[in-house]
Design a binder for these strands. Structure first.
Length: 255
DNA sequence: ATGGTTGCTTAGCAA
């Protein structure tokens, strides 16, 4: 199974790029984050013309996640389903070809110490509880998306500058480790150990030209998911009107 | 260095 995850930073602004990318790479599954629009603005017809169907958790203006697949998704579920009154569309789950797939957009967190920061840490704890309630570590499961966390310093071009920030803070990293302790591994790190692999570069300060990036888009998998290959499509960050994130592509084997 | 850029929505917020 070829699976990719991509924060598109508005699906409307990225429709042409999204369709071109799908046609070129033809993944079995593509998880999207930051649709930034209600369900009615999603380009269902355009992706259908390329052979994909999409399921989404969407809202106006902010957030929004989707799972696109060539074989239709089953058992679609939206949100964290924990009784919390939370209008933010940050999780969609579906089963494709026997694999349970979660497309997640973890809160950015604003500034450390802010309300948004508390929401981020709480959201990560709620995601851990979601897995405990709705999933099993001994079944094939992928949790992928924009985690807004660089797991380790090797995932950051200039670790000193980002130390203590919302993307690198120890508390956020600890929540991610807790999530993984349930039974998930960072699949890219099963096949690539080197530093210098990033998935997000700020639009500002010529970050891409200086390769001043962070790897905050992750594909986590249970033991039954083997990763044969993983890479970031850095070229997709270049050219006219790119997202500030590049797609992460993994080749999986399900056992 | 509290800047810088992009997108949504209409000047300000979020990232």
């Amino acid at each position: 199974m070829k699976l990719a995850t991509w924060n598109v930073n508005s699906v409307r602004a990225r429709e042409a790029r999204l369709c071109a990318w799908l046609a070129r790479h033809q993944p079995d599954v593509l998880c999207l984050q930051e649709l930034k629009g209600s369900a009615d603005v999603f380009p269902h017809a355009a992706v259908a013309a390329l052979g994909y169907s999409a399921v989404l958790a969407a809202q106006r203006t902010y957030n929004g996640v989707a799972i696109l697949s060539r074989t239709p998704a089953a058992a679609v579920a939206l949100g964290l389903d924990d009784g919390v009154d939370d209008p933010q569309a940050r999780l969609v789950a579906a089963t494709v070809a026997g694999v349970r797939i979660l497309s997640v957009y973890v809160p950015n967190g604003g500034e450390v110490g802010s309300d948004k920061w508390a929401y981020k840490l709480d959201w990560l704890a709620r995601l851990s509880r979601y897995l405990e309630r709705h999933a099993r570590a001994d079944e094939p499961l992928v949790v992928c998306g924009d985690f807004n966390i660089a797991p380790e310093d090797r995932d950051v071009a200039v670790p000193e500058r980002w130390r203590g920030s919302v993307l690198c803070h120890d508390d956020a990293r600890a929540r991610l480790r807790s999530l993984c302790a349930w039974g998930l591994v960072d699949l890219l790190r099963r096949v690539r150990a080197e530093a210098g692999i990033y998935s997000w570069w700020d639009y500002r300060n010529l970050a891409l030209a200086r390769d001043d990036g962070l790897r905050i888009d992750l594909v986590l998998g249970t033991e039954g998911i083997r990763c044969r290959d993983a890479a970031v499509d850095r070229d997709e960050r270049k050219g006219e009107k790119p997202s500030d994130h590049a797609p992460v592509v993994v080749e999986l084997e399900v056992s």
